[in-house]
């Protein structure tokens, strides 16, 4: 009896030991995903009720506080620029030649009618800083072994209180993710693919965002080029650059 108990205990410990330290997993994911600065070009494919649309943009970010986005296409959006400094947001539209300051709650709106909000795009805080994590199992996705992690926010202002991530065991890329409300209600699903080697990182070039509460096929976010830790001149993150 006693023996069985000890055996179970050891077995349990061994199984546990098979799982990596969740924080180290998250740190490795962060190492892939976040950087001091970043310049990227991306395309959003928005699957609407009536048609699909593509929006391409070029983004510059520095840390979590500064972000600058310029829209390249379609024609209507071309030249529209957005600057986010901390909680403040400015938009410049070439057609009106106006720089408009929007209050922070506009960040909660959907980006160009997609399933992403500006928050989703711009919140680039490190996962390890925002969430406590626990590895709860392992699975296989598209032939790749993944750790399943449950994340629970440790800060107050996380947009999503809980997340469930399926992280590639070798490359430390989130291949699948579910975002939950505080109550545990599933809100969004993300599926990433086209993982590529960029510089010394693994990076998913395509992610499908799906707001599960809404009908529809969600939004594909495709990164066509990305540059990490590039030097971005300070003036990029100034209001003057909006008008250029």
């Amino acid at each position: 009896m006693k023996f069985t108990f000890i055996l179970l205990l050891i077995l349990g410990f061994l199984l546990q030991a098979n799982y990596p330290d969740p924080i180290s997993v998250l740190t490795k994911v962060d190492a892939n995903m976040t950087s001091g600065t970043r310049i990227s070009e991306s395309t959003m494919v928005i699957h609407g009720k009536r048609n699909d649309r593509e929006v391409t943009s070029k983004g510059y970010t520095q840390g979590n506080e500064k972000a600058f986005t310029e829209y390249l296409s379609p024609e209507r959006e071309k030249g529209t620029k957005m600057l986010k400094l901390e909680n403040r947001l400015w938009i410049y539209s070439p057609s009106t030649d106006r720089t408009i300051q929007l209050s922070g709650h506009m960040l909660r709106q959907s980006v160009m009618g997609s399933d992403l909000s500006y928050e989703d795009v711009m919140d680039t805080r490190k996962l390890a800083e925002v969430y406590n994590a626990k590895v709860t199992g392992e699975e296989t996705i598209d032939g790749r072994k993944v750790w399943v992690l449950n994340l629970v926010a440790k800060v107050e202002d996380a947009t999503y209180d809980k997340r469930k991530q399926w992280i590639d065991q070798e490359r430390f890329v989130v291949l699948k993710e579910e975002l939950f409300a505080k109550s545990g209600q599933l809100l969004k699903k993300l599926v990433s693919s086209d993982v590529a080697r960029i510089e010394n990182r693994w990076y998913p070039k395509k992610t499908n965002y799906k707001d599960v509460l809404k009908d529809g096929k969600g939004t594909d976010f495709i990164v066509s080029s990305i540059q990490f830790d590039a030097v971005i001149p300070d003036y990029v993150f100034s209001k003057a650059s909006l008008k250029e």
């Binding site: 926010a153 996380a158 209180d161 975002l179 409300a181 109550s183």
Partner: peptide, 8 residues
């Protein structure tokens, strides 16, 4: 109040 989603 912090902007964290909740649903129920």
């Amino acid at each position: 109040k912090n902007g964290t989603f909740d649903a129920g």
